[in-house]
Design a protein around this nucleic acid. Structure first.
Length: 776
RNA sequence: GCCGGGGUGGCGGAAUUGGUAGACGCAACGGACUUAAAAUCCGUUGGAGCUACGCUCCGUGCGGGUUCGAUUCCCGCCCUCGGCACCA
């Protein structure tokens, strides 16, 4: 037996047949259950890489399985086509970013088609086309009208490499999301913001409805990022006699989640940037020590100040505040660990029940009165604590707290908040870590903001019948300035309201706007009246299965959830969450190799542990995510030329469960290829005979061997349904098919060709095998 | 420090949630076919032991526990990978 199949030839022929038969095109069809299978759309960088192939192979297997089990499946693909690399290429070559982008799209589309992914290419979108981005502009105008979009002067994150401002989500930990080694600067800029705060509660609460469908860690990351804390703001009057001038009574407003511990307040602490400190210094009444401390803190970046292990430091301001609950006079300090930008920038320090406050008050010898004890507490409340008591047990009891003593913590919080409210010195308050989304970008290759600045009318939205505001094709990228602002034909317009000369907004939108709603456009990609027809969207959406990388856990995936809620409020859709099930696939990894002389080496440049170029030892490093800079990449095209796309896809689905990282292994790829050849050979050995004899009666003289193979066939069908349909464990599904193949080979040795029952069992097994292999 | 994942052969990983641990594959070794090689096929492959064509014991990070039975459940540790973290 020397037959071998030639994958490239077969695949090409088959792909043509699929295209001719339009098998992947799906439209609204109420007679079938529907399934929306979506993968995160790629940025058109120029080349498809293995990470893409893995992502789309997972989606393809699922989509194919769903189609085969009777679903009407929507499976689109598109391009996240605005962004920096195109603009950088334009600057470098003084060329047009659209030319670069579309060349890349064409190349990458051809690659994807060659892999044979089952996309409905009629629905392809590219976010940089006016047909697409006009709806970004339309959304912005709707949001502006609804008060969800506003403009303000703000301190924003600025990446010098991107040469633009960034949203908070894109500057996590003080570094740019695209340039992880570039710390962001802070700049004052007038910017557009989307009012995320209005949706903060929903964004958090609705995460509960995703439980089970989304990975726990993504839910956790989002919960952390949204960062809700419920508490109260309380005003502490500043003791008038304590100010040097005696003329400035004022208050300090603090935020606390534990108003029940207010009798345990030992002192007040404000941030060094707090207005109280500022005015104290301005009035000349600050001590030298205080002044020096504030200057010192101002010189330290926020990241350093909150870094782990930074010792708590503070200075007494000399002022006093009055505890509104018991009239106690408290010293007011300033300290490095109290930050502006969270809460009110001022706290009451309750050292007995907060570790940070404990550390601080211990250091500066401030009192540590205890006001919370466990329900079964039998000791002496006034016994000094050796550490903060921070139990979150709801049965804990409030003590030494006047009329509220003896109440359990939750009740104490409720009634004490009510008391503060009733007496006008406090209110219930919820704080969030998440901030409004700064969406302005000082770049030219993005969606123009559809607003006009008029000296008399202020900000005027472009009338909807004038959309899209198109990006000029003749921008000058050679100049060092901002191409849009320098383009007179773009900038200078008549005000739509008064007709006087006015200026267009010359910033563009964050590209995360494009990806926040793109998969709604797929359902109705040619619509010229609306972003999409709500009726068509009602059929296909929400997305049944979304597949993509974990890196978007708090970026894209939080923005798109927000956008969905906004679209719901605009009446376009009727649900709050866009994605029912999320799969975050692991990375594709490979060992790195490094030579002293030639730095990172491609695996093909290492021969027997030596560098191909100089013969020095090539050190094999850790396996890491494939990346160009480390040269540990494998080119999908090369692999497909050698083995065929079916082998590459089968290997990726078989080598690891989808959410785990996958280590590239050449031998295992060959194993996948061997397996497909094995299937091909056994089918070719028998297919003529089977085709000739047709279906046989299963009962006629079925042998023990035939019964065994039939049992295996049906067990395998059961396993595949479970592995793909329920668990999305493609690796065990492939293993099941390999077992069935082995069983067929066993049977092949025992088969009695004159026994029609044997032939039937063989036909049934092989037909089932080939069908079940199709999704992979 | 807090919240999640996870720890199983030489390797990637199974065990569909309390019922034969190591499926399937890779690598390795032995054999068949071949003048030879490739390809293919067959066999062995967690460890130890034995009176050895079968059987016994030990084995799922460590120590206990529940159970007729534990990789799976409970208690206490260790390690590891993510996320969060002076958030008041």
């Amino acid at each position: 037996m020397n037959e071998k199949y030639f994958p490239t030839e077969i695949e090409e022929r088959q792909q043509q047949r699929w295209a001719d038969a339009k098998v992947f095109e799906a439209d609204v069809d109420e007679s079938h259950p529907h399934f929306y299978c979506l993968e995160m759309l790629p940025y058109p960088s120029g080349r498809i890489h293995m990470g893409h192939i893995r992502n789309y192979s997972i989606g393809d297997a699922l989509a194919c399985y769903k189609r085969m089990t009777g679903y009407n499946v929507l499976r689109p693909m598109g391009w996240d086509a605005f962004g920096m690399p195109a603009e950088n290429a334009a600057i470098k070559n003084n060329a047009r970013p659209d030319t670069w982008t579309f060349e890349n799209i064409n190349a990458m589309r051809a690659q994807l088609q060659r892999v044979g992914f089952s996309y409905d290419w009629r629905r392809e979108i590219a976010s940089c086309t006016p047909e697409y981005y006009r709806w970004n502009q339309w959304f912005f105008i709707q949001m502006w009208k609804a008060g969800l979009l506003y403009r303000k002067n703000a301190t924003v994150n600025w990446c010098v490499k991107c040469n633009t401002s960034l949203a908070n989500e894109q500057a996590e930990g003080g570094f740019c999301w695209r340039h992880e080694d570039v710390p962001v600067e802070l700049r004052e800029l007038e910017q557009w913001f989307i009012r995320v705060s209005k949706y903060a509660d929903q964004l958090l609460d609705d995460l509960d409805t995703l439980e089970g469908g989304w990975p726990e860690r993504v839910l956790t990351m989002q919960r952390n990022w949204i960062g809700r804390s419920k508490g109260a703001e309380v005003d502490f009057a500043i003791d008038g006699n304590s100010t040097a001038s005696g003329s400035e009574p004022g208050v300090i407003r603090i935020f606390t989640t534990r108003i029940d511990t207010i009798f345990g307040a030992s002192c007040m602490i404000v941030a060094p940037e707090h207005s109280l400190v500022e005015s104290l210094i301005a009035s000349g009444n600050a001590s030298d020590e205080l002044q020096a401390f504030v200057e010192k803190q101002a010189a330290i970046t926020k990241e350093d100040r909150i870094a782990e292990g930074t010792e708590k430091e503070g200075v007494n301001t000399g002022l006093f505040a009055i505890n509104p609950f018991n009239g106690e006079k408290l010293q007011i300090w300033t300290a490095n660990f109290v930050l502006t930008g969270y809460g009110t920038g001022a706290i009451m320090a309750v050292p007995a029940h907060d570790e940070r406050d404990f550390e601080f008050c211990k250091k500066y010898d401030l009192p540590i009165p205890r006001v919370i004890v466990p329900a079964d507490f039998a000791g002496d409340v006034n016994e000094p604590l050796t550490e903060a008591f921070t139990s979150k047990d709801e049965s804990c009891i409030v003590v030494n707290t006047g009329e509220w003593s003896g109440k359990a913590v939750p009740e104490a919080i409720a009634v004490m908040t009510a008391h503060a409210q009733a007496n006008g010195f406090g209110t219930a308050q919820t704080n969030f870590k998440i901030r409004d989304w700064g969406v302005s970008r000082q770049r030219a290759w993005g969606t123009p903001l559809p607003f006009i600045h008029c000296a008399t009318c202020g900000i005027v939205p472009v009338p909807e019948n004038q959309l899209p505001v198109e990006l000029p094709k003749d921008l000058n990228f050679a100049s060092q300035g901002a191409p849009l602002a320098e383009h007179a034909g773009f900038v200078n317009v008549a005000c739509p309201t008064c007709g006087e000369a006015a200026r267009r907004d010359t910033d563009t939108m964050d590209t995360f706007v494009d990806s926040s709603w793109y998969y709604f456009r797929y359902v109705d990609p040619k619509n010229t009246e609306l972003p999409f027809d709500p009726k068509v969207a009602a059929y296909w959406t929400p997305v049944d299965q979304y597949i993509g990388g974990i890196e978007h856990a708090v970026l894209h995936l939080i923005y798109t959830r927000l956008w969905t809620k906004i679209m719901r409020d605009l009446g376009l859709i009727a649900f709050a969450e866009p994605v029912k099930n999320l799969l975050t696939q692991g990375m594709v990894c490979l060992a790195t190799a490094r030579c002293e002389e030639h730095d990172w080496l491609n695996p093909t440049e290492v021969l027997d542990g030596k560098c191909k170029f100089c013969g020095r030892d090539a050190k094999i490093g850790r396996t890491e995510k494939m990346s160009k800079s480390k040269k540990n990449t494998i080119d999908p095209d090369e692999m497909i030329n050698t083995f065929g796309s079916d082998t590459v896809r089968l290997f990726m689905l078989f080598a690891a469960p989808p959410e785990k990282d996958l280590e590239w292994d050449d031998s295992a790829v060959e194993g996948a290829s061997r397996y497909l050849n094995r299937v091909w050979r056994i089918v070719h050995k028998w297919h003529t005979q089977i085709a000739e004899c047709g279906m046989r009666n299963a009962d006629s003289g079925s042998s023990a061997a035939a019964r065994a193979v039939r049992r295996k066939t049906h067990q395998t069908i059961q396993r595949i349904s479970n592995d793909i349909g329920q668990r999305m464990n493609f690796n065990t599904g492939v293993a099941a098919l390999m077992e069935l193949t082995n069983a067929i080979y066993d049977f092949d040795k025992k088969i009695d060709e004159s026994n029609s029952g044997d032939l039937f069992a063989l036909q049934e097994a092989m037909e089932a095998l080939v069908k079940m292999l199709a999704p992979f």
